[in-house]
Design a protein around this nucleic acid. Structure first.
Lengths: 295, 295
DNA sequence: GCAGTTCTCTGACTAGAGTCAGAGATATGG
DNA sequence: CCATATCTCTGACTCTAGTCAGAGAACTGC
């Protein structure tokens, strides 16, 4: 059976069994959309959910959301009030009856999950859960999109800020961005370089910069992966993509520096064909320097 | 994270990514239901699909199906004709345009699957596919339902017939049901015994019989698993369930006989606590006899 | 304080999915 | 051949989901 047929087969089996999980919501005699909304509002807890957040998260039309909320209010499950700060914004909260109803939804969904797990032996269950984790992880990995982005773009800014914060927490000597060798935005822009950001559901979850040095080897910098997406092979993917971008810009050799506390990164560089070289840039926070010949 | 949360997490990730596969059908500007129907009719090939089969397989209302077909006929994708044998029954076939359209649907669905697989490395892809196979297999296993059934029920009859056919093809000396020790239906009925059938999507895919012998050990017979559902642990499950049924009927010890060519079965008996004993029943086709003390 | 923007709501739609009752044609068992 | 069952079709519905335009209140920057 070829790859595509295997995915299709998976699709059939899974939608049939997992689709039943939605029935748990339907079984409470409420349209699916309203149940989902109820669940989502409850997830926000006591401080309530702002309507605009709900709209964005569930991708609902504003008129549609409004009507759904009205229906839930009519059943006394939800109360919608103006936000204290900005009274254009409205906030939805569950009533006690709504909280109870949501708990009930949870219970019937749990029961359906139980219907999948219960017929299995302990060992089968463990294997199923492990395989589910693997599928989830790899499908998430494949949902990540890497795009070339201007270094002044908000997504690049937040990525670099997160990168610096990460360094500050990992380096045994702390990290002060002012002490590192500065890289103006322009050096990460073509034709001087490039900057890639990885997005998952529209949120930046990783980045990498490339800085050209004329005929000298180019430099890979700011390689960062959000802690929420570790273990998806995203670091390696960013490295591959930045190398491809370098090749496209006519680069033959890339270099980078790294700190001794970033052990996974060091291992990754080594396993991707990077070889250690002497200090080439005098970066104060670096302990190791690597180089790779491309193509 | 507990088991249920893991399943939920899987559900979220998978429905989001896999749900996109349905969009491939929608993208052809036709309602999803009609595309699915088109696909299903095409799967039946040249001899066409009987409407009643389609109705059952897709669980459609007869009026609804009729209308959908009319729409497909209007687009000249499908032709519906009376069945030659029984002209109440009607048969749907794809026109050449329908065949082309179905191929197009396949292609756009392939492209979406590619969108999941392509961003991954070769190794990740292999791990994803293997995990998908595992999830599919175990979810199928958990969808199997084992029920106590009357031995004269059609599901029991077809199971036993398949069991005999299997023996005939596996035994090196062939198998003639007339030569084996006969077991009248009544001996598989309470209070003389019981008969369990495993169902998957309503179809029998396995069975096992239990025959009491008063104070003597009870006998497990007709343990069969359809070749389509091998590797799901269904044999072990039937064995567990028949043992539980035996205990419920007050049985303390069960026995069974088997043929030397059924090596997986023999291995399974051993690993489930069965110990070899001398011939206890003189069954002509048996080479090994086993016993297990229950509870 | 005014122009423009943001946020929510209402009203008026469309489309797909599915249900139900009953009619009409065709087979089957006695 | 007649009563009964099977199969498909039509007409008349309902519900959910979702879209679009525009009104009105509240905020923001100048």
């Amino acid at each position: 059976m070829d790859d595509i047929a295997r995915v299709r087969q998976f699709n059939r089996t899974v939608t049939e069994r997992i689709g039943a999980l939605d029935d748990g919501y339907l079984s409470r005699g409420r349209p699916l959309g309203q149940s989902r909304l109820l669940w989502e509002i409850g997830a926000a807890g006591d401080r309530g959910a702002q309507l605009r957040d709900l709209r964005e998260r569930l991708e609902l039309d504003s008129g549609y959301l409004s009507r759904q909320l009205r229906a839930l209010e009519a059943d006394d499950l939800v109360r919608v009030e103006a936000s204290p700060g900005d009274s254009r914004v409205r906030v939805a909260r569950l009533t006690p009856a709504g909280v109870a109803e949501r708990a009930e939804l949870d219970r019937s969904s749990d029961a359906l999950v139980g219907g999948i797990l219960d017929p299995l032996t302990e060992r089968q269950r463990e294997r199923l859960l492990a395989a589910m984790d693997e599928v989830g992880r790899l499908m998430t990995a494949s949902a990540v999109e890497v795009r070339c982005v201007d270094p002044a773009d908000p997504s690049a800014r937040t990525s670099v800020a997160a990168y610096f914060a990460e360094l500050a927490s990992r380096f045994d000597i702390g990290f002060d961005p002012a002490r590192t060798r500065p890289t103006p935005d322009d050096e990460f822009r073509e034709p001087n370089g490039t900057f890639l950001v990885a997005f998952l559901h529209g949120e930046p979850v990783g980045c990498v910069g490339l800085k050209l040095h004329g005929d000298e080897p180019a430099e890979v910098k700011r390689l960062w992966v959000a802690s929420s997406t570790r273990g998806l092979g995203l670091g390696a993917r960013l490295l591959r993509e930045v190398e491809a971008a370098a090749v496209a810009l006519g680069v033959g050799v890339v270099r980078l520096d790294t700190n001794r506390t970033l052990t996974e990164a060091i291992a990754m560089y080594r396993s991707h064909g990077y070889v250690e070289i002497p200090d080439f840039n005098g970066e104060p926070y670096a302990d190791f320097w690597f180089e790779k010949r491309l193509g």
